[in-house]
Design a protein around this nucleic acid. Sequence first.
DNA 1: GCGGATCAC
DNA 2: TATGGTGATCCGC
Length: 619
Amino acid sequence: MQADSIRLQEPVQSQETESLVRRLAGPSSGKAGLANDQSEINRIIAEVSKGSKFYENEKRRDKELTERINKILNIRDEVVKGVDISKIEANVDRLLAEFESQRDLTQIIVHVDMDAFYASVELLNNPELKGKPFGAILSTASYEARKYGVRSGMAGFVAKKLCPDLILIPEHFTTYMETSDQVMSIFKRYDPNMLIAGCDEGYLNITLHCEEHSVSAADCVQEMRRIVFEETKLTVSAGIAPNKMLAKICSDRNKPNGQFQLIPDRKTILAFMRELSVRKVFGIGRVNERLLESIGIKTCGDIFTHRATIALMDKQFGLHYLLKTYLGISSNEVRPPQREERKSIGSERTFSPLDDGEVLLQKLEHIASELETDMARNGWAGKTITLKYKLDTYQVFTRAKSLDRYVSSKEDLFSIGRKLFLAEGHLKLRLIGLRVTKLKDLRAPSPAGIKKFFEATTSSAHTRRKLDPEDIHKARHDYDNAEDLHIDAMPGFYEHEETMHDIEVGDIGNDDEVGALELVQDKVKSKPRPPVSAPSRSLSSPAQVCPICRQILKVDNRDLNTHIDLCLSRSAVREASNTSGGAGATENSTSSSTLMTRGWSFLMTPKDTSSRPKKRKRK
DNA sequence: GCGGATCAC
DNA sequence: TATGGTGATCCGC
């Protein structure tokens, strides 16, 4: 077969090609949904994309990632040299035991997830589409279309190539939002305190409901799904588990129109996690998947196998996060996002590439105007303005300015944005946007007058004038109305109350070493290249001295830094394996525990919504 | 404080 | 010909 001969030749091609092809398949591939033969689909996507600016950008990023991986592998090779692995493992195992002791199996958490939500709503309103592959660019694809590899976010012409019969329809955003509200209100009957996480999913804690109605979790969810279907004709999938991370993974298990329960039993959970691909875990995307893969971690079970490596490279991998993932432990706190948790508000627009400064300024002015409206409607002002732009090459840059006063008017937003923009010189852009951070809540009660607060809330926030349809539309669109938040918030899977300063795995560094590192980092040039042209990189590499090993190196700053990383790891490891009883005598372990807790270098920790320890076992 | 990167939806 | 918008977080300066 021809396919075979092609496959035989494949390994000759660089890994780069393989990973690039995967990258092009899009961010969602592998996360959820079909597990069918992706390779042919990926091949088509790569072929059709080839040569475009988008493709070139993906290629560049893929190359950078490959370099990053090589660097990590080098560090790992150095770091494991001559260390007592079993000793490190023993320390990790103590950490695991500590986490284990905090496991909470008492809550019944449900993750509900509408099946192909937008597409399903379209089907209701246009039954003609039934059984046909259709999609709306950038927002949805029916299950039939997904079979062909069509994904949301995909360029129309690529989608058409995958599925020539694809029907493209306009999207009806307001309808989706109204339907979403309808569905959410049903969920709220089971948990009025639920967390809405986007327009088609949410988390519920049904512990109380099940107790009060003497009903099992499975029956409760079954009923909830039935009622949603009866009232809206939409199907929903659900996962039942003792925490948010597990519930979310479970809701994907029997999709579409199914539910899956992970019984709250330690052994069951461990067995479940052992086989689970790390890619399914919230917070692990395409990049982290590849980084983990590079050190042999594909499933959550592999985390345990490689726990020593991870511990030695906590900075790169985030030991605590991965250990909790391996154990299937995460936050089980369910509550709506609070207004004061809001960190930024922004607006941005993509257009066909443009290099006329005047026209770009007009775009910027329009953005400023939209942002003003948005901020006014929701009662925000802010101190820092960030300009964002994307070149026609798809490279993204941001430029920020902090002020000594709060702003919210279009005039302020535009004039600051314009300054930032003009400082960049001549650019060819495909996107421009503004974001405001350091927010002040204009609706927050003033510290001075409680009375004022009371009047304000009763008149404007709670019993405001009747909503007209326009208002509903807008409120849905911009997520943060007082009561009914539709914020795409981080569910906050992991609480890392770091109560374990007494446990150390690889005591990374003493203060001297930290100091040395910082000293060097100060000298390192900031790497972002100037956006337009300007060849980056200094050409020659002056000789430099490593502050740790005193070796003289003829390398540039970046490589020097890599070298120092190695040196630091090495000495840290020596120390860790030389120190007998590493954990015992460290009552005051500020430096190491700081480093430990800070080690989230690339595995983003979903936000820890502090607060309300449900049943903290220890203080 | 700033800028780049990653991630979720 | 052609690949989104909003918000969050973390790291390394």
